[in-house]
Amino acid sequence: MSLDSSLAIEGKSPAQLAWIRFKKDKVAIVALVFSTIIVTLALFAPWVCALLKIDPYSLDNTTLDSVGIPNSPFGGMSRAHPLGVEPGTGRDILARLIYGARTSLTVALIATFFTTLLGVILGIWAGYKRGIVDGIIGRTIDLLLAFPSLLLIISLAPVMQPRLVSMGFPEGNPARMTYIILILTLFGWTYIARVMRGQALSLREREFVAAAQASGAKTSYMIFKEILPNLWAPIIVYASLTVPGYIAIEATFSFLGLGVVAPTASWGGMLADSIRYFRSDPAYLFIPGTALFLLVLAFNLVGDGLRDALDPKGERAQKV
């Protein structure tokens, strides 16, 4: 290797550096590929199902015995039904999983977007302005943390969903999904807001902030153009770690009967149904459950990989 080539330093953007670090993390790459596949399947659900000749709604009695239990082993797996059929109805599980992923990912991704948006803006605002704004936002967070959020979500659902309908949201599942998204945002923004506040508190003491202030920048300019661009790394990390949590919560809601309702497919709904078939058809518990676990795991691993790639600080700890 010649002397100049080893000395030539190639300029790399922080994003490129992060991507190079991310690529080294094999687990994260596998997880990224897996989650991308699931997202793609969910996005193109009608075409995928047509291609596989499966349908989430059509009932198939031929696969069930007289008491409604799949008549072949492993929950009725066959060439026609790759992951078996639902006991009782004979609907195809793979198709229902693909359509269920649609609901689950829609709720999780939209809710993550609004949670992050609200948390980032309020957090930076509080940390940058301090004083009374900080006080109000801080006390609101204290208040929200004091409430048993799951209980409130459950008990307000029967009231708030009709209200959303009267506000113009389509009745049924869209209103139910909107409610979940709204309430997750309402209770979810506090965590990222506290992280952002801490970051903004230290950034506001830096020279470039003082310079912008001296040239007469308004608060909105300071928040969005001066402070926010420095915080993309933690924002991406926290947003990516919010998604798996929300996927799990959405499944929990539909497990409790608060999410989308049949015939629309939902992962939590299938698991709630599976309780009745514990003894006769355990595959109905394991297949949707494993799917849910793998999807949450994949998103968690991607988030972890991003955290390691974007925040190399962790490497510096000394050995004891």
């Binding site: 499944a251 929990t252 497990f255 939590g268 698991l271 459950g289 676990f293 949450v296 795991l297 968690n300």
Partner: peptide, 8 residues
């Protein structure tokens, strides 16, 4: 553990 929803 983090990826297992409680009800599951």
């Amino acid at each position: 553990g983090l990826s297992m929803p409680t009800f599951f």
